[in-house]
Amino acid sequence: MNKSTTPPWQAVVVGVSMGGLEALKRLLSALPADFPIPILVVQHMDPQSGDGLATILDAFCPIRVKEADAGEQPLAGTVYLAPANYHLLVEPDGCLALSIDPPVNYARPSVDVLFETAAEAHGSKLVGLLLTGAGSDGSRGLRTIQQRGGHTLVQDPTEALAESMPRSALELLKPDAILSLEEMAPRLLDLAQYSPPKGLKPTRLP
């Protein structure tokens, strides 16, 4: 049974680059459709790549996956992907925003932009995950999340397809945990104090 106390988290933010499609498939497919915290994702991608990623992940995962729209209020049970060639930001009131400001760390969308604005909006009520990727985007943002009291998780670089993004974060901060991709979803369910509706399995594994 779900408790009447809501988990303290207002959002989960995820940053991922090279190796992201596989990582996101594994992470998001292990979450239930009624996961109680909105999830915001920046995946580096080609500026021209359209909205194919959201379509693929939505078809593959029990949880709803869509491209973020400017001004929308993020909901539980939904994953919002940054659109190709736009930064995804969080307004102080928690609503989503988009911009075509210059690339940050050579990336648009940039993980740092999402992480820093989410940290500003949600303070200690934010969970940040940095996964596989090349480059160093996301390190500073993850540190900002930690400085604001949020919970920080980094994928173990030794098992990441591309290790430099998680490794560069570990050079900048000591996260709350370094986890394998397999361990990420259970940790999120734990943080969310998720208990599945009776008789249903919490996850649908591929």
Partner: peptide, 9 residues
């Protein structure tokens, strides 16, 4: 103006 990007600028 939307605040997040304005604040960054």
């Amino acid at each position: 103006y939307a605040e997040a990007s304005l604040h960054r600028r």
